[in-house]
């Protein structure tokens, strides 16, 4: 068992912490941070992906749009969400809600805990690549603040398509990488069991990513879900305050610059 309060952790311990079963569910997180969450379903094209939860909620007295990847809690839910790996319909649902938020001037908050976009046969047939590509393209021009918190796993393009807005924060026990440490080890050493070593090489921890300016900051975690939610909420309010002072042109210029530097 990883002690999530231990401040000096190896990359492998961070990975274990990010995947910890005790992580809050999407619903706990949303209801812990926001008030009056009203869930909205469907992508208006083909279905409703349970791996993406979205809707409207209140942050203080402001209406906001909230989107979260959802791993599910029971075994049945986990099957339904493919362990939190969104299908194309999930990414299309999130983009629909983001465009809706833009129309009504609502800021967007996205919470990410996914190993990646679902790599199944149906996902290929329904255009997983196109769905992710369209998110990246459209979100780059959305005229409201888009703020992301990675609260567990941030896996590759499936995470990036939900983390391409104005600010990305990570909680202490979370990871963000181009592929899983297992996959990395399998390619590099032809041995997926050396994932712990791979995690070190990959620089996937919040601290390393902050040093590279990939993220805006790190939110401390504790055993108390309530306290974590409070910490996230405080950060969300600060970020929204900062971004709300910008004109639309400034907001979009800064968003462009945020990725242009890499």
């Amino acid at each position: 068992m990883v002690n999530i309060l231990d401040r000096k952790k190896t990359a492998a311990q961070i990975v274990a912490g990010a995947r910890n079963q005790e992580k809050m569910s999407a619903y706990d997180l949303i209801n812990g941070i926001f008030d009056d969450f009203f869930e909205l379903h469907g992508d208006r094209l083909s279905g409703d992906d349970a791996a993406i939860v979205g809707g409207i909620a209140m942050l203080a007295d402001k209406a906001v749009t909230v989107i979260a990847t959802n791993k599910g809690e029971s075994a049945q839910e986990r099957m339904l969400t493919h362990f939190g790996c969104p299908q194309p319909s999930g990414y299309r649902k999130s983009l629909r809600l983001i465009k809706q938020a833009e129309k009504f001037g609502r800021p967007v908050f996205i919470f990410v805990n996914t190993a990646g976009a679902y790599p199944g046969k149906s996902a290929e047939e329904n255009g997983q690549g196109e769905a992710l590509a369209n998110n990246l393209l459209e979100i780059s021009g959305v005229k409201v603040p888009v703020i992301t918190v990675i609260y567990g796993e941030g896996g590759s393009g499936g995470a990036l398509a939900l983390a391409c807005g104005d600010a990305v924060w990570m909680v202490e026990n979370s990871m963000y990488s181009v592929l899983s440490p297992e996959g990395f080890a399998a390619i590099l050493w032809k041995d997926s069991k050396r994932a712990d070593e791979a995690a070190e090489v990959m620089q996937l921890t919040p601290e390393k990513l902050l040093a590279q300016n990939v993220i805006e900051g790190i939110i401390p975690e504790s055993h108390s879900h309530k306290r974590v939610c409070r910490a996230i909420r405080k950060t969300m309010e600060q970020e929204l305050g900062r971004l709300s002072t910008l004109s639309t042109e400034e907001l979009l210029a800064k968003r462009y610059e945020r990725f242009r530097k890499f």
């Binding site: 590759s156 990036l160 181009v178 592929l179 990513l209 990939v214 890499f262």
Partner: peptide
Amino acid sequence: ARMQEGIFSLMQMAKISAAIK
């Protein structure tokens, strides 16, 4: 993405997409 360049490869996807937009 080129895994030898880690997260920097991933960031290219967002960078290019914004320029295309």
